[in-house]
Structure formats: structure tokens, C-alpha cells
Amino acid sequence: MRLLNTFGGDGTELWSPESSTLLQVLVSIQGLVLTAQPYYNKAGYAIQAVTPVGHRNELPYSKNAYLLTLQTMLHLLCRPPSGFKDLVRDHFRCCGRYVLRACQAYLEGGCLVGRLDAEENATEASLEHPCSMGFCLALANTVPRITEALIDIGAQGCDQFNGLRVSASH
């Protein structure tokens, strides 16, 4: 399904308020946005995957998507949708430390966004391309607020991330 009529498509790929479901929206978000390289999932961009233009545009796109996802997460933590407060809090109580572990890997200066292992630790391949100073500064401005919000809801293992800073290697 194309996300809420943002792209063209045929039949069941199109958003329909009468027949589309929340599950379809969530699966689309998972498959199109929450991937290692969301840039290439934009309509018509897959062809750029092996081109210099694609390689030049993919990383800034992923960094921006990551920062926007963190902003959305912070918004959900501070103002969960009506009826979903317990669901949001329970999820982040269990998984918040993984978000902060990923932020820590990026702030330490050597990771491609979206290229961490299953535990959100840097991999050898991810260390080949350090994050830009601009990305790390934007991340450093967001992380303290997310850490505080996670600690406030009692998220497991988040206390250790208080005071994350941009690595001196930048």
C-alpha cells in the first residue's frame, strides 16, 4: 500500500478511507520507512541504489529520517495519543535503552545511520563512515530530552545514558 496517497499505485496499493486499515498503514511504515535505507523506498528512487546520486543522497536522507523519528518518539512519550498511553509507555519501558544505545553509537562518531546490529551496537562495516558533526550536534540536542522522558516513565536501563555527549573524535 502506498502511504496515505503519497504515491500512485494500483488497487490495494492505494489508500482508501473506506477499506484501508490501521494495520496496512503500520505495515507500510515498517516496510518503507523503518528500514536501513528508506531513501530507496521513495517512488522512483530504487533505480538510484547503485548510482553516485543515490549514494550521495541516501545518507543525509537516513540521518534526517532518524532525527525526525526521534522527535516523533519524544512527542509520543510526552503526549501519547488518547487511549494509547499504556501501550506507548510499556513499549518504551522495554525498548528505550536500544534507542539510546543507537544514539550513543552515533554520538561516539563512527556509524552509518541504520547500520547497527540487532542490539544497536556498531558493526565493523558501520564504523567505516563516521557521522557528520552536524548530525551529531542535532542528535546531542535531542538525546537528553529523550533520556529524561524515558527515565520518567521507568524505562529499563536508561539511567546509564544520562549525559551522552558528542565524541571528541568529531
Rank of each mutant, 00 (worst) to 15 (best):
F92P: 01
F92T: 01
F92C: 08
F92N: 06
R93W: 03
R93M: 04
R93K: 10
C94W: 11
C94M: 11
C95D: 12
C95I: 10
C95F: 15
C95Q: 14
R97N: 15
R97E: 12
Y98W: 06
Y98N: 10
Y98D: 13
V99G: 01
V99H: 11
L100W: 02
R101I: 02
R101K: 15
A102R: 06
C103I: 02
C103R: 01
C103Y: 00
Q104K: 13
Q104A: 14
Q104C: 12
A105D: 04
A105M: 12
Y106L: 03
Y106P: 00
Y106C: 01
Y106H: 05
L107E: 07
L107M: 15
E108N: 14
E108L: 15
G109H: 00
G109A: 07
G110N: 13
G110Y: 08
G110D: 11
G110F: 04
C111V: 03
C111G: 13
L112K: 13
L112M: 15
L112N: 09
V113E: 00
V113A: 10
V113D: 06
V113W: 02
G114S: 06
R115N: 14
R115Y: 12
R115G: 08
L116P: 03
L116H: 10
L116M: 08
L116G: 08
D117P: 04
D117M: 04
A118V: 12
A118R: 12
E119G: 07
E120A: 14
E120K: 08
E120R: 10
N121K: 12
N121H: 13
A122L: 05
T123Y: 02
T123C: 07
T123G: 00
T123E: 02
A125E: 07
A125T: 14
A125C: 04
S126P: 07
S126A: 13
E128Q: 14
E128M: 08
E128R: 12
H129T: 15
H129V: 15
P130G: 15
P130A: 09
P130N: 04
